[in-house]
Design a protein around this nucleic acid. Structure first.
Length: 272
DNA sequence: AGCGGAACCTGTCGGC
DNA sequence: TGCCGACAGGTTCCGC
């Protein structure tokens, strides 16, 4: 569900609720959400800790405690955070419940594609190994993309979704970026020129910045903390717009499936 | 190594 | 109303 702009939005709001606060209790109703980590290791590691910082790497939310310990939270497709009063019942698909002074924080995830992990040392946290370039970092350049796309016959749309290349893009923003850059989603990675790679870099940053400033995109599942919606859906140009006119040329937007995911594009404005 | 496809889950929506 | 298939902001695993 959430891509980089949604995760950024959630982090900003989580900071307002739990930064500098102490976790008094922790329940994990379904241990499988920890993906093999012992539930006792998680709950013991977390209980009594104060959250000193909240950060992001790719689509992972990072809670940092004193020292180098902390928590990784990936929201999968449907994960969301909701504040409840201590006497309220947990929602049906609660993956975790954290007790704070005066309120509880629930992590609710209907499809359970998300994940939680306690780490002693962030440098050793396995999910963070091998995550690719952050779009707003200086290592994310046209030269970097050219190098990563070299000899890759896979569609550029699928390469944009590859978290080991670029951190944080998902299906909505990959389609929007390719539309703005004028590149067909099925275009083979190795055929991207230096100037096209430059366009990808610029439009990636621009789309993400705009989406962050509008609190992300809410189409169906994504919710900010406490069920609030984002607003960037009002600014999407192609995603989920099959059959609607292209905002640039009026031709009908098409949908194709590649890598098992839908891509939306204009066959006239986006070149192969 | 890299690729395509299936699997993991639950919910919703559209068609018949 | 009800059933069925398609599809959903993601990732990982498996076989070629």
């Amino acid at each position: 569900m959430p891509e980089l702009p949604e995760v950024e939005t959630i982090i900003r709001e989580l900071k307002g609720e739990i930064l500098r606060k102490k976790i008094l209790s922790c329940q994990i109703p379904r241990e499988s959400y920890l993906r093999g980590q012992d539930a006792k290791i998680f709950t013991d590691g977390v209980s009594g800790k104060t959250i000193n910082d909240i950060d992001r790497r790719g689509k992972y939310i990072i809670w940092r405690f004193e020292g180098s310990a902390g928590v990784l939270s990936h929201l999968g497709m449907t994960g969301k955070y909701v504040k409840l009063s201590p006497e309220e019942q947990s929602p049906k698909h609660t993956a975790a419940r954290f007790g704070f002074e005066g309120f509880d924080l629930i992590l609710d995830d209907a499809r359970r594609f998300g994940r939680l992990l306690y780490f002693d040392r962030e440098e050793d946290a396995e999910p963070l190994q091998g995550i690719g370039a952050e779009p707003f970092s200086e290592v994310f350049t046209a030269e970097y993309l050219i190098e990563e796309f070299k000899n890759r016959k896979r569609a550029v749309k699928e390469l944009l979704l590859d978290q080991t290349i670029i951190a944080g893009l998902g299906n909505i923003y990959a389609s929007e970026i390719l539309f703005r850059a004028g590149l067909h989603p099925m275009k083979a990675g190795e055929t991207i020129s230096a100037s096209q790679a430059q366009l990808l870099v610029e439009h990636t940053r621009k789309v993400l910045e705009e989406a962050i400033s509008h609190n992300g995109t809410t189409i169906s599942d994504y919710r900010r903390v406490d069920e609030k919606s984002g607003e960037f859906q009002d600014f999407l140009q192609v995603y989920d717009k099959e059959g609607e006119p292209c905002p640039k040329c009026g031709e009908a937007i098409r949908r194709i499936v590649s890598g098992g995911r839908s891509s939306y594009y204009c066959n006239k404005c986006q070149i192969l």
